[in-house]
Design a protein around this nucleic acid. Sequence first.
DNA 1: GTCCACAAATTGGTCAGTCCAAATTGGTCT
DNA 2: AGACCAATTTGGACTGACCAATTTGTGGAC
Lengths: 247, 247
Amino acid sequence: MTAKHDQIANTLIADILDDGYRAGERLPSERDLAARFQANRGAVREAMKTLQQLGLADIQPGGARVQQREQASLDIIGHILGRGDLPDRNVVDQVLVVINNLLALAAEQAITVASDEQIEEIRQATRPLYQQQLGHVEHALARFSLLRAVMVASKNLPLQLIAKSLFEQFAPNMESLAVFVETDHTGYADYARKLDGALQGRNAAAVRRTFEAFAKLNRESLIKAYNAAQHALDNAANTQAKEAVNR
Amino acid sequence: MTAKHDQIANTLIADILDDGYRAGERLPSERDLAARFQANRGAVREAMKTLQQLGLADIQPGGARVQQREQASLDIIGHILGRGDLPDRNVVDQVLVVINNLLALAAEQAITVASDEQIEEIRQATRPLYQQQLGHVEHALARFSLLRAVMVASKNLPLQLIAKSLFEQFAPNMESLAVFVETDHTGYADYARKLDGALQGRNAAAVRRTFEAFAKLNRESLIKAYNAAQHALDNAANTQAKEAVNR
DNA sequence: GTCCACAAATTGGTCAGTCCAAATTGGTCT
DNA sequence: AGACCAATTTGGACTGACCAATTTGTGGAC
């Protein structure tokens, strides 16, 4: 059971993101919201504080107003992805672009600042990707471990925080696609070997190139999964429609 | 006059970031904090909610615990930069590295997805940088406008949100350095011209190269300012010490 | 002495009602 | 129309209380 103020906050967030409230518009007063959600005003206040920190609402004595989505915090990405049956395709692609770019940057930084031990840790993290018979979930976890190792080795705090935030909002919303993902074991293994070599030689350019290839693989895999999931959804919708006609 | 719950939150945040509370340690209860700050528990609760959303505290029935800094939100960067007389040099450099990399990515994206009108807007934003006689503040604002135009043209929401968040936390904490910055007008003008040309030809590689040169300029300028500010601070400290001896 | 089960104290989550200061609103006068 | 002022609305803060989950303390069994 999630806390009540979180329920209220999530409802309001969904309302705003679904354009139930337009930017600049005034939100109902805390007292009105308390009545609507059958909650205490304190709980509503905590929910409003959440909205404020997400940059979705500007809250001042006299009234709270909805802010432009571009004014929001990075933390709204998860909520945006969480809407609808499938996460928004464009946003998913945008997140991938950013994550991959940051990953390449982190690798570049790591090559120059990381200790030999940390480079060795990254190389260790590439090992599981050699294995052809890893399950989808295990393979995804292995890739995540690699990502994490690179980020830590970059010794760049903002970089780590951004990657963590993006990933933690991204991953849970991709679970609905997970069953449709077909892991390209051979492709990843090939990439893992190249990365290992580049790391060993501390070759920044080669590392960046490899990570860009890695990104391409990830993206293609996800696009395929997306198409499959979309077909499945459409079929389900058709079936439901036919049943409705038969009734 | 800032709100009381914000004061409480800021004090607690500073305590945590200054290692007043170690990771894993339990924070005082809301009731104790209310007594300490001579405030209502409701106000303390709102402050705690801030800490939670910053990822600094894990707050559960039974007690709140301090979280690892690596678990925090990107929004703590501003608080980290705000400590001490001068912002932490390493963190400043890290932020610069990330911002510049994102800027290059945004430019690359913009080249491929932006409309002709948006490209034109970016080119317009480069114009002020041609002028040799712009004041430091005006020049900084002009650079910011350019950054903003590129981000918008990238049409990548997460990218925009990250850049906005980083910049808004970064800028106010650089004001203490502002007086020591010597703007390299000639360098910027040179870069602006190259960028303009690359944009006109929609040459992604050239745009990225130009932005990397731009980043280098920015970084060198800030390092110089840092050294100057550090010297000024040291001298002030020495003067104070001598005065103390004379008393 | 160690471990475990149970009761007591602590703590966060929620609620009701009240007061205050800032902002908004609506009417009035010019 | 536009400027000004009072009434209302709204967020910020406070007091005091209750509940459920967790933690902590205590005692007994091994």
